[in-house]
């Protein structure tokens, strides 16, 4: 994984203008509840919070240990002096992965992808842009989809390479695109008009 996967990993935000929900200010929210039904509900609420937080900051990939080390606001509420333990965070992310909104990137369960949009959703957004901008049958580099001047104002500008490749693979399965590699393993995509 060289230049393609790393650029979209952001350092964790410490504080931000993100509008946290009211339950973020309740102490029991930060302790994993022993009663199973309550715990299930709690995990779901955390999943919702994490997905909307990562969507707000356009975070595609995060390193749990890094977030704990930096004391990011996401898992650490300074106001009520409560923070999530590493085990609880892992439990929450297990839930997220099980519900199909993310993926673990390592065996140690530290780095994870969060899909506040699923790869298939990204696939249709990107394909729609290609069609609307008249770029079917032309060649695009993967880099220009992520970083090009033409995508600067689009939602998928600076998209995480891992998720982008999943989206492109999905388009390939649908017969709407073909990924191929050029020199030095640089990747290109040819998009097709659907017949």
């Amino acid at each position: 994984m060289s230049e393609h996967s790393s650029p979209s990993v952001k350092s964790p935000p410490i504080t931000s203008a993100f509008p946290f929900p009211s339950y973020y200010n309740r102490e029991p929210f930060f302790t994993l509840q022993p009663i199973l039904n309550t715990q299930k509900k709690q995990l779901q609420m955390w999943q919702e919070l994490i997905l909307s937080y990562t969507r707000y900051h356009k975070i595609y990939e995060l390193d749990i240990n890094e977030y704990i080390k930096r004391g990011s606001e996401l898992f650490n509420n300074e106001k009520i002096k409560r923070k999530l333990s590493q085990e609880t965070i892992v439990a929450i992310f297990n839930e997220i992965v099980d519900s199909g909104y993310g993926e673990w990137l390592d065996k140690d369960k530290s780095r994870a992808l969060v899909w506040w949009r699923k790869p298939d959703e990204w696939a249709s957004i990107i394909y729609q842009w290609v069609v609307d901008s008249g770029q079917t049958d032309s060649i695009l580099t993967v880099w220009e989809i992520q970083k090009g001047d033409d995508t600067k104002n689009l939602e998928f500008h600076e998209i995480n390479t891992n998720i982008l490749m999943k989206a492109l693979k999905s388009l390939e399965k649908q017969g709407k695109a073909q990924i191929f590699s050029g020199s030095e393993n640089n990747l290109g995509v040819k998009f097709f008009s659907t017949h």
Binding site: I139, G175, Q178, F180, G182, S183, E184, G188, K190, F192
Partner: peptide, 19 residues
């Protein structure tokens, strides 16, 4: 992949230029 045949030499040349 199924549609590999759709990539022509011209496509490869364009990709190299764009890279």
């Amino acid at each position: 992949s199924a549609r590999k045949d759709q990539i022509s030499d011209k496509d490869k040349a364009v990709l190299e230029l764009k890279i």
